[in-house]
Design a binder for these strands. Structure first.
Lengths: 116, 116
DNA sequence: ACTACATATGAACAAGTGTTCATATGAGGT
DNA sequence: ACCTCATATGAACACTTGTTCATATGTAGT
């Protein structure tokens, strides 16, 4: 970013070139950032683990997570917009479930990390 | 959370019990939340991918990520506090590198997800 | 049509986050 | 001792985020 800083490089320019080549596109960073943001809130993590092996309606999620209806509904809305969960309206209820397996994998990986 | 909501459960209480049993401890949620927060910022993601296969000093990271010295230093400080990176002071420079393999795994998993 | 229940949504507010700017610390060379 | 380079750090600021409160929408039963 600055030109007149770090005049005396110790690591050779090749190392910096290599690191530059390892960079991804901005779209990839933005997507990953969005994905991680979605799973970086404890309430949403609770919701995700509740939905891990079954579908649940908003009602059920209130019971399970001990959160208010509004809070859950707002979070589900975000999770749905970002395609992490899908919904199925049946009668008065709306049932939510995880949308694909990537979420489960990332969740599991972090959970393993948490055990240390 | 509320008692007088959802009087007519469609899913049986057993399902709710099962979901409750799948919940983790608050400490686990907080840890996972913290971990995901750390990798949910594009600047930090850039830093992490630059450090993926090599150590770099703050100087190098400025060049590679095209960010200001202060911004990088602040982010490295957070990444170090949360043990995602470690540092090694040699002379005038401080070299940073990833601290364990969990970060790499979680990063890779998300990157795969990003390709869809 | 009316009522009760389930969910969604908008506004408002407190709390958290990332950057910049200015300055401090610390190490090496002279 | 002094100067310069490399990094760290504190304060200030704009911006984002999650919750609550109030209210709207929609569905089923009567």
């Amino acid at each position: 970013m600055k030109a007149d800083v770090c005049k005396e490089f110790i690591t050779h320019p090749q190392v910096i070139e290599a690191a530059k080549n390892d960079l991804l596109s901005n779209e990839e960073y933005d997507y990953m950032s969005m994905l991680f943001k979605m799973v970086s809130d404890p309430t949403r993590l609770k919701i995700i683990s509740a939905l891990f092996d079954r579908e649940l309606c908003v009602c059920d999620l209130m019971e399970v997570t001990e959160m208010s209806q509004s809070a859950i509904s707002h979070q589900l809305s975000k999770l749905k917009q970002t395609r992490l969960v899908k919904s199925d309206k049946r009668g008065k209820n709306v049932f939510y479930s995880l949308n694909d397996d990537h979420v489960r994998q990332i969740f599991r990986q972090a959970q393993e990390h948490a055990r240390d």
